[in-house]
Nucleic acid binder design. Sequence first.
DNA 1: GTTGAGCGTT
Length: 256
Amino acid sequence: MSHFGRSGPPDIKDTYSLLVLNVTFRTTADDLFPLFDKYGKVVDVFIPRDRRTGDSRGFAFVRYKYQDEAQKAVEKLDGRVVDGREIMVRFAKYGPNAERIDKGRILEPVDRTKGRSRSRSPRPRHRDHYRDRDSKRRSRSRSRSRGRYDRDQYRGRDKDYRHRSRSRSPDHYKGRGRGKYDEDRRSRSRSHGSASPARRSPIPRRSPSPPRTAPSRDASPDGRNHKSRSPTPKSISPRGRPARSRSPLPRSDADD
DNA sequence: GTTGAGCGTT
């Protein structure tokens, strides 16, 4: 059980944050705590994770109580192989609120005493410049992992698209006694030559669509026979423009 | 089950 990050930052009044990079995606705060705690008093260990997937982002923050201990941990744990990967430990450059910190210590917690302190340069802090990365140079081409996130997070709403395509049909008639069905299927195949697998629907009826004797169109809410009926009856087209008789959004319903 | 630059939450 990790109590780190459960209730947010405990106390950062006099702590020094260390940034641990290159950690494995499966490394947890509990795994880093004993490792860093051996070199000093660790008050908190936090590993940023994705809000959607919940997976680690590959780096962690270790907050020490004293700077000397943090410095020692940086020198000792920097380059240490954790979980089969060499981690990089260094002092955090920015605070939790993107505050400028030095050696892990927050230099400007709040601008209360010094009114001029807030005159700092409004440098971009958050990394929400996903779309901007395209505008930037392609020098960062070495990182492709973010690419998939960009698609899955923003574009790909349906993350189960890869888990689909699970056809259960074969298992169904298989467990029902395929022996009988098997022969039956063959017989039918022989007879018709090309059997229609679609006929295997559990609903034998309903296939034969009722004749058009159905009531008027107002009684047909579905009206999925749009393919059958002529969408562009010239008869009712006063003008010679039967094409765009609909709204200006042709693929509004066809969209995924 | 995958990935690999960087700077953080209740």
